[in-house]
Design a protein around this nucleic acid. Structure first.
Lengths: 232, 232
DNA sequence: AACTAGTGGAGAAATTCTCTCCACTTCTGC
DNA sequence: GCAGAAGTGGAGAGAATTTCTCCACTAGTT
């Protein structure tokens, strides 16, 4: 890790950066988040710059080395996690629905981008660890409440929430996009959530859109066989 | 794709290869499967050779180019899928338990290694497509039966079984290994399976071992903070 | 024991990735 | 709207990684 980049400049609220520079910085973080999720934390940096629609030099100016960038992504993600959780607590009709809301929002916020942190790619200094703990605490609180109210089975633990969201965040192979429009992750999360409910609570969530059948695979196979497969 | 390697030699049963060569061929396929799952289908080939405990030249002799190797891994994986499904059909007490058995076995067989196929990295010639269809058919039959018997909710489709197994096959960040001994994937699969059950069927599976709490994360964080983190 | 299929690893060639430099563009304050 | 500062993109040298061949050596097979 190097000089810590100029992250502090923006985060400590001193609006010293030019407006367009701040916007670019955010675009880079988001592109990096997506690329890290797709290709791991060693993904080429110029691919990130390209995805962000920014020159490679801009990326290097903001984040002198890869660790600075990873760090920014991780902090950004933990903070999105806190937002999602607090929002869910405020808006869920009960603690189970708060949990449900949180997990769906966390999917959208691509919480899986915390992976580099969990994989040891990030130095856990006080700032990162504080963010981690803050995020963990809110999630734990939602889970505890849901269990106290008897809405979630007792044998579920913290890791069953967070690790599944991480899993669901990671992209499926490209064919999934050929098969369907919607997002299978949210559908599968709903099934999982039904599995989290307390015993005897037989009601089932209505599952969201993409229903993928064996026949769908056949169709795609034929499409690939005939025409060219440039749409992958 | 090139000359098709000498896969046919072994697969058509003519035991023309020397015994040690056949063993090495299998070791390479298994190593490739694991590395492809971990690092994607572009992973360096010498890493695969190293993992297989074999020289790089041996790998190139068996599989003249990367596509040959991918192809072999995919065929191997589809065939493991058929084995797992047939075995599950024979051994499950009812169709729901057959489905459960299949999914757990499929996890162990790392079915996620079919990803390169699904991601368009493999030419779907008749052999590959036959294997795909054979595997798909058995799984579909198990699911159909379970639904007819009212053991699995009606709104579940083929893709909800296969894609979730693929997701669960992919490895979690290294920290998961620091936190726990067991395999979270099987635990999370059981929760998902509870969510697949037909409405009103309130019983819950007893979840297997690794329970990961927020406190576990704290412990690891402290461990990393003090000593060196070379155990990652 | 002799013959041949099989093996490992060094290293040249090709490819990919990193990171700097600088001429040019865009914001901001006045 | 102007001046000056802040920000930008992309070419390309250098570094690092990856591919793939060659050949002296080893180990199954008969």
């Amino acid at each position: 890790m190097s000089e810590r980049s100029d992250a502090g400049r923006k985060e400590s609220g001193e609006g010293r950066m030019r407006a367009d520079a701040q916007r670019n910085r955010q675009l880079i973080i988001e592109a990096a988040r997506d690329i890290f999720i797709e290709s791991g934390a060693d993904a080429p940096l110029d691919e990130i710059a390209r995805r962000a629609g920014v020159g490679i030099a801009t990326l290097y100016r903001r984040f002198p080395d890869r660790d600075d960038l990873i760090r920014a992504v991780v902090l950004n993600t933990f903070s999105a996690m806190v937002d999602a959780a607090q929002d869910a607590e405020a808006n869920g009709t009960d603690a189970y629905h708060a949990l449900r809301l949180f997990m769906h929002r966390a999917l959208d916020a691509k919480i899986g981008a915390t992976m580099p942190a969990l994989a040891g790619r990030v130095v856990f200094d006080d700032e990162v660890d504080g963010a981690r703990l803050a995020a963990g605490t809110v999630v734990q609180r939602i889970l505890d409440t849901a269990q106290e109210q008897g809405l979630v089975r007792k044998d579920i633990a913290f890791g069953d929430i967070t690790f599944m969201v991480i899993r669901l965040t990671r992209p499926l192979p490209a064919i999934a996009k050929l098969l369907v429009d919607g997002d299978l992750a949210h559908r599968h999360l709903d099934i999982y959530l039904d599995g989290l409910r307390a015993e005897g609570d037989g009601e089932r969530a209505e599952l969201p859109a993409p229903v993928v059948t064996l026949a769908d695979f056949d169709k795609v196979r034929k499409r690939l066989a005939s025409g060219r497969a440039d749409d992958l």
